[in-house]
Every structure is written in C-alpha cells, then in structure tokens.
Nucleic acid binder design. Structure first.
Lengths: 154, 154
DNA sequence: CTCCATGCAAACACTTTGCAATCCG
DNA sequence: CGGATTGCAAAGTGTTTGCATGGAG
C-alpha cells in the first residue's frame, strides 16, 4: 500500500522512527477514512490489533501525523477532536453536512466555496488559505421521515 | 437597555428567576459583543463586578443563555467554548475570518452563503438550517506586513 | 549503544455535579 | 415560606506530561 510507504518515507525524512505503534495508529486512521474517528475511538481500534499500546502514544502519534500533514483534525463540537486523512490540498478543503436528526456527517462537494473565497478577498481583503465549514440541517433520509410524520422544524 | 429587558422577559416567560448573577453574566457578554469571550474570560470579568460569583454559576448561566437563544457558542478550536450574542436569525448565520498570523477574528458578510445552501439542497439533498464557517488565512494588515518583508506563505 | 519512543500513572485544563446554604417570587 | 439558584469543592472529561524502560537505527 503506497500510503504506508509514503508514511514511512516522510517519517525518515523528518528523522522520526518507524515503530509498530505508529504504523498501527496510522493504519487505523487510513482504514477508517471518512469515519471522522476521535482519539479515543482510534485508541480502542488500535488496541484490538496491538493491545499493549497506551493512550499517550496514540495522542502523540496523532499529533505527529498531523504535524506531518498526513491527517488533520476536525472539530464537530461534541467534545472530541476527530481526524481525517489529508488526501491532497484540494480534498483538504471540503466541508461537512451534519444532520441534526440522525447525527450523520457527510462530506460535501469540494469546489463550492472557491468563488466565495474570491469574494472575501475582494470585500474583506482577507486572503483565505483554508476553511472549516460545517452546515447543520437535515439529511435527505431524515427529511423524508419527518415529512412522513408531518413534523415541522424550526 | 432593551436587551436586558428582553432578558428579564424571557427569563420570566420560561419560569426562571432573575438573579444578579445572571444579570451580570449576561451584561458581560452583551458588553463584550464581538470579542468572542470564552467561559473563563467571562468568569473573570463578572468577578470584577461581582466577586462572590462561582465558576459553576457562570457555566450554568451560559448554558441557560444558550438555551434561551440569547447567546450561542462558537468553537475556534483553541480549547475554549466561546460565546456570541444572537442578535437575530440573520445575524446568527455569519462566518468568521481567522488570521493565522495575528490571530484576529473578524466577522464576515452575512449573506455570502445563501446561494451555496441552495446548491447543497439541490446537489446533496441536504436542508441547511444553520452553519458554522471559519475561513483561515491572512488579514489585510498581516498581508501587507508580509509583503513588506517579502515573505511567502504556504 | 544511543537516543528516540513507549507505557504508565499522575498531572492538567476545562467543565459538570452534589449538596447545603441562600434568596427570589 | 418553598423551591429554584448559588458557591464551594469534589468529581468528570479528554488530553498532556514526567520518567524509567524498551527498542529502532
């Protein structure tokens, strides 16, 4: 798997050591891409494959991976820091659709915000280099259920 | 001040009691609108006027104010829950421009995201009811300084 | 063999909770 | 008065740190 090779390469490049703990943590994040796992969930999953690992190592490794720009943290304000894989710079700049009914988190189209960022540069004279965007609302599934039940929201 | 009256009114409406602690907490948030104070900062400011207040009361009051929809929490991922006043539904749905250089937080134009939300409804079949949007980048001032220093970023 | 990396537990920082005392209505 | 509200301190979170041991290079 090329992602793992890349991981190894960047590790060496930065003078960090390759350990099975780091490999396991990284693998769990890769294998669960799109799940937005939090640190504890990652810890639990790693423990299944590598029971001796300690929480601290997981936290340290996640920080390391973030520093290496292999993953990055997202915050859904549920009290946990959650992680996503950085696929490339474009992919990085997506946004999330968070359903208030079922709690599902869906990743949205990538390029929607480009024009807005241009506008911000013009109007606010603010050069956007990244964004964290969360839309809250109701997903298709829940909308349909709510319609069926004749519920109204807001 | 009509905001305070409104506060009092909503309190009564919901069957909550009006106490000087609650008034002070609310006042501090109102007086520092735009500052995005976190709970501890609010606690410190309230203590200047009302030294007997306890942290717990501040947290409880902030939760109350949030429930009453008089304020709402924002998360700038600095480890603190920060608060803003809800002025009206429109105002609520703004976004933030966070400068990576000086850390300043500016509030952006309100209506920029309307069209995007329509597009999300069409493309993703997701009905947006609120959003939390943070743009990271460089503010006008820092951009100019960086240009002067011939620095490049990213 | 030399450090970097790890595991453990203790320490942290922010927030919440339990409970007796207080005070609004 | 009576129950909601408070202050205090203790308990809970998720996360970080100190330190001796262990393992990669």
């Amino acid at each position: 798997m090329s992602v793992l090779k890349e991981f190894n390469r960047v590790l060496k490049e930065k003078g960090y050591k390759f350990t099975s703990q780091r490999q396991h943590v990284f693998e769990v994040v890769v294998e669960n891409d799109g799940e937005h796992l939090n640190s504890q969930e990652i810890y639990e999953l790693v423990r299944k494959k590598y029971p001796e690992i300690g929480v601290a190592t997981v936290y340290r490794t996640l920080a390391l991976l973030e520093e290496m720009k292999l993953i990055y943290g997202v915050d859904f304000e549920d009290g946990f820091r959650r992680y996503e894989i950085v696929k490339d710079d474009k992919e990085h700049r997506h946004h999330h659709l968070i359903c208030l009914e079922c709690g599902s988190i869906k990743e949205g189209e990538n390029d929607l915000l480009g024009t807005i960022e241009e506008e911000i540069l013009r109007k606010d004279k603010f050069k956007v280099t990244n964004h964290k965007v969360k839309f809250y609302g109701y997903c298709d599934k829940c909308l349909k259920i709510m319609e069926k039940n004749n519920k109204t929201h807001t």
